[in-house]
Amino acid sequence: GATAVSEWTEYKTADGKTYYYNNRTDESTWEKPQELK
């Protein structure tokens, strides 16, 4: 099967917290998305 390329990108805020942003859905989350686990 084809490997899905994750749409999630990991970013850090100014105070060093990590969050994740999805370019396709324009969604952001503090929790690590399922695709990255």
Rank of each mutant, 00 (worst) to 15 (best):
N23K: 13
A4G: 15
P33N: 02
W30K: 04
E31Q: 09
T18L: 08
T9N: 08
Y11A: 07
E31N: 06
L36H: 09
S6L: 09
G1T: 13
S28I: 15
N22E: 03
G16F: 00
S28F: 15
E7M: 05
T18Y: 09
N22H: 02
S28L: 15
W8Y: 01
V5H: 11
T18M: 04
K12V: 14
L36M: 11
V5D: 12
T3I: 11
Y21D: 04
T9E: 10
E35G: 08
P33H: 02
G1Q: 13
A14R: 07
S28H: 15
K17V: 05
W8I: 02
S6C: 15
R24C: 13
A2H: 14
W8P: 01
T18A: 06
T29G: 03
Y21H: 11
Y21Q: 04
T13P: 00
G16N: 04
T25I: 03
A2Q: 12
E27F: 03
E35S: 12
R24G: 07
W8V: 01
W30S: 10
S6W: 07
P33I: 03
N23P: 12
E7F: 05
Y19E: 05
D15M: 05
A4M: 14
E10W: 04
P33Y: 03
Y20G: 00
T3E: 11
N23R: 10
S28W: 15
Y19A: 04
Y20E: 02
E7P: 06
L36I: 09
Y11Q: 09
R24D: 08
W8M: 00
E35Q: 08
K32R: 10
T25W: 03
K32W: 04
E31G: 04
L36V: 08
A14L: 09
E27V: 06
S28P: 01
E7K: 03
R24W: 14
Y11H: 14
A2R: 13
N23E: 13
T3P: 14
E7Y: 07
K17D: 10
Y20A: 00
T25P: 00
T9R: 10
E7L: 05
T3M: 11
T3A: 13
A2I: 14
D15I: 01
Y19F: 09
K17P: 01
G1P: 14
D15E: 09
Y20R: 00
Y11I: 14
E31M: 06
K32F: 05
A2W: 07
K37T: 14
T25Y: 03
Q34C: 14
E10M: 05
W8L: 01
G16K: 01
G16Q: 00
T3C: 15
A4R: 10
Q34L: 15
L36C: 09
Y19N: 03
Y21A: 02
E31W: 05
W8Q: 01
K12M: 10
T18P: 05
Q34T: 11
N22Y: 02
K12L: 11
W8H: 01
T18S: 11
A4W: 07
S28N: 07
